Computed example of a mutant assay.
Amino acid sequence: MTIIRTVPEADATGAVAAIYADDVDELGYVAPHTAAMAMNPEALHAFEQLIRSVVPTLGLRRYELVTLAAARGTGSAHCRLAHGAKVLSKGLFGEAQLERIARDYRDAGLADDEVAMMAYAEQVGRDASAMTEADALALREAGFGDREIVDITIAASARVYFGSALQALAVDVDAPPMLGPAVRAALDPR
Rank of each mutant, 00 (worst) to 15 (best):
T2P: 07
T2N: 11
I4F: 12
R5L: 06
V7M: 07
A10C: 07
A10G: 13
D11V: 00
A12Q: 06
G14D: 04
A15C: 04
V16Q: 09
A17H: 12
A17Y: 09
A18L: 11
I19K: 05
Y20Q: 10
L27R: 13
G28H: 08
H33L: 06
A35K: 13
A35E: 07
A36P: 10
M39Q: 14
N40G: 10
P41N: 04
E48I: 03
Q49L: 06
L50V: 00
R52L: 04
V55S: 11
E64F: 11
L65S: 09
L68A: 04
L68E: 03
A69Q: 02
A70Y: 08
A71T: 06
A71G: 08
R72Y: 04
G73T: 01
A77Q: 02
A82M: 03
H83E: 05
V87N: 13
V87F: 08
V87Q: 11
S89Y: 06
S89F: 08
L92Q: 11
Q97R: 05
I101S: 08
Y105A: 01
D112G: 12
D112F: 00
D112E: 12
V115L: 03
M117V: 03
Y120L: 05
Y120I: 00
A121M: 02
Q123S: 06
V124I: 13
V124F: 13
S129C: 02
A134I: 00
D135I: 02
R140K: 10
R140N: 12
E148A: 15
T153K: 08
A156Q: 04
A156V: 01
R159A: 13
R159H: 09
Y161R: 14
F162G: 10
V171I: 13
D172N: 12
V173F: 05
G180N: 00
L187Q: 01
P189N: 04
R190G: 14
